[in-house]
Amino acid sequence: MPKVVFHHHGDTSTVVEADAGSNVMRAAVQNGVAGIVGECGGQAMCATCHVYVRESHLGALPPISEDEEEMLDCTAAPRDDRRSRLGCQLTLGEGLEEVEVDVPGAQL
């Protein structure tokens, strides 16, 4: 089963398993992971599922769509040019069996 590790400010983390085909935002919301909102339901419309992907997983990520690119300019916490992604656009499963992300300090 695909796995997501959410690292929170201050050295705590949450490990969540998810179905293949799910995504980082859904995995967080379904499991009540603090700091991920997902207000638009995964439509790349609200930028409230912003995560910083850890370096070692960057190579496995799907490319950034134009919608995601624009939304990433509007995140509540500062954008990191390399690591910022929207969790709803990170589909789990094939190619992305495991991913570790840092949860930003703010989403709204």
Binding site: R26, V29, Q30, G32, G38, G41, G42, Q43
Partner: peptide, 30 residues
Amino acid sequence: YQRPPLSKEHLAPAEGVAALPLRAERHFAE
């Protein structure tokens, strides 16, 4: 649960995606 997907990907022919909750169940108790 989240309503926006209901008129969009929730209707897709692929094996049904579970509804996305607005918050996990334990959120309310917590």
